[in-house]
Structures are given as structure tokens and as C-alpha cells.
């Protein structure tokens, strides 16, 4: 049943930062802060981590005009808004890619596993959403952690038919608490995107 069709997407275009991160874009004084600039707002529970990466186009060039959003559970596996979720953790991050090298970066906490609707648990993950000029419909994916033992029983990773693409969803540990999640829009290492 589809009583009313969903409004069509259109590209975020080259000036998405004016609307979504105006302070980053140099439009100061309209909003006090850019939305999603801080995910940790106080003494949040859990392990502090940095999730960073770049978004590459089909030529291997990093996008410098993309905007990346993150949505995740807290260190106890609860999403902001759920009862007993961590009040010092918003779960939502928004980052304009660096205008020089295209890096996005989230200072966050390592999420815990969350339930799967049919029973069992999903491995810890961060939902990632990417928009930019040239992307006509925002791209939805997940960053899992390469060193998480829960990955082996994750129901989403488990349903990927082409097993060599599972690694496109695994953030790689770079340092003690830094994970790199590079996103490839196209090409041999194309990231697995979701229709969910």
C-alpha cells in the first residue's frame, strides 16, 4: 500500500554546507552551533574513539564537498531518546569533509551491540549517511569495527552474498582508539550501500 508517494530526493549540491553546517561555511551568527558538531556533551559512558575516513569517487579522488552524518547507539547499546540512554551522548554526528583532503571525523564512543528485530543482536555499528554534489539520493551504509568479535554473527553482514564486499563495511583500526572508514562510491572496492 502506498497512499502517498515519497517526495523525490535531489542532490544536496555543492552548497549543502550553507544549510547544514553554516558556521563551517562561514555564515556565522545565524545558529549558535552547527548541528551534530558534538556527539559527546558531557561525561558519557564508554570508550572514546575517533571514526574518520574519506569518500572516494570512481577515479579514486577524495570528495572535498561531501557531508557525512553518523547515527549510533551509546556504550550500552541504547539510542538517544530510548529510556535510560546516556544523557551525555547525542548519538548524532554531522561532518563537512575537509576542504583540502576530504577527511571526515567523528569524536564519539564505541557503540555496543543492539537488538535485531527477529531476535539476537546486531554487532556494534555506526549508521553512515553520505550526501554531495553528484549523489542524487543520499547513500546509507554502516561502519562496523574490524576487531569486534560480534561481527561473525551479525545478521546484516551475514546476508552479504559477495563475501569479498564485507570488508567494505569494516572500519580499520589505525591507532589505539582511531578507526578509519573509507567510503568508495564506485569501482573495485565500491562500498556496500543499503536500501533499508
Amino acid at each position: 500500500m502506498n497512499d502517498f508517494p515519497e517526495t523525490a530526493s535531489q542532490t544536496a549540491g555543492p552548497y549543502v554546507h550553507i544549510g547544514c553546517t553554516p558556521n563551517f561555511a562561514g555564515i556565522n551568527g545565524v545558529y549558535p552551533d552547527d548541528l551534530g558538531a558534538k556527539m559527546i556533551t558531557g561525561a558519557a559512558n564508554g570508550t572514546r574513539i575517533t571514526l574518520l575516513g574519506q569518500v572516494f569517487d570512481g577515479t579514486g579522488t577524495p570528495l572535498r564537498d561531501a557531508m557525512v552524518e553518523a547515527w549510533q547507539a551509546d556504550a550500552n547499546g541504547l539510542y538517544a531518546g530510548q529510556p535510560e540512554a546516556d544523557l551525555h551522548f547525542t548519538g548524532f554526528g554531522r561532518c563537512a569533509c575537509d576542504p583540502v583532503d576530504g577527511t571526515f571525523r567523528f569524536e564519539t564512543v564505541r557503540p555496543a551491540a543492539v537488538p535485531w528485530p527477529q531476535g539476537g543482536m546486531q554487532a556494534p555499528h555506526i549508521t553512515i549517511w553520505i550526501v554531495a554534489r553528484g549523489i542524487n539520493l543520499g547513500l546509507h551504509t554502516r561502519a562496523y569495527f574490524e576487531d569486534a568479535p560480534e561481527n561473525d554473527s551479525d545478521p546484516v553482514l551475514g546476508r552479504i552474498e559477495h563475501r569479498n564486499r564485507v570488508r567494505t563495511l569494516l572500519a580499520q583500526r589505525e591507532e589505539e582508539s582511531t578507526y578509519r572508514f573509507n567510503i568508495h562510491l564506485q569501482g573495485a572496492g565500491e562500498t556496500m550501500f543499503f536500501d533499508v
Binding site: 542532490t11 551534530g36 569517487d57 570512481g58 577515479t59 570528495l63 547515527w71 549510533q72 547507539a73 539510542y79 538517544a80 531518546g81 530510548q82 547525542t90 548519538g91 548524532f92 543492539v114 537488538p115 535485531w116 528485530p117 546486531q122 555499528h125 549508521t127 554531495a132 554534489r133 553528484g134 549523489i135 542524487n136 547513500l139 554502516r142 545478521p155 546484516v156 546476508r159 552479504i160 564486499r165 562510491l185 564506485q186 565500491e190 562500498t191 556496500m192 550501500f193 543499503f194 536500501d195 533499508v196
Partner: peptide, 26 residues
């Protein structure tokens, strides 16, 4: 729309029923 040529994924997306990760939001 020229920029879409090198910024469009080519593989089919992965479908699964929405979970708490997609049913919640800020």
C-alpha cells in the same frame, strides 16, 4: 548531470528490513 558519472554506485544495494538503527533518529 556530469558529476553523477563518477559518484554513482554501480552495484545493487543491500536490502534488509529496518531495525532499531534505522527506526530511531536524532
Amino acid at each position: 548531470y556530469r558529476t553523477s558519472v563518477k559518484r554513482s554506485p554501480q552495484a545493487a544495494p543491500l536490502s534488509f528490513p529496518s531495525t532499531i538503527s534505522e527506526e530511531t533518529g536524532p
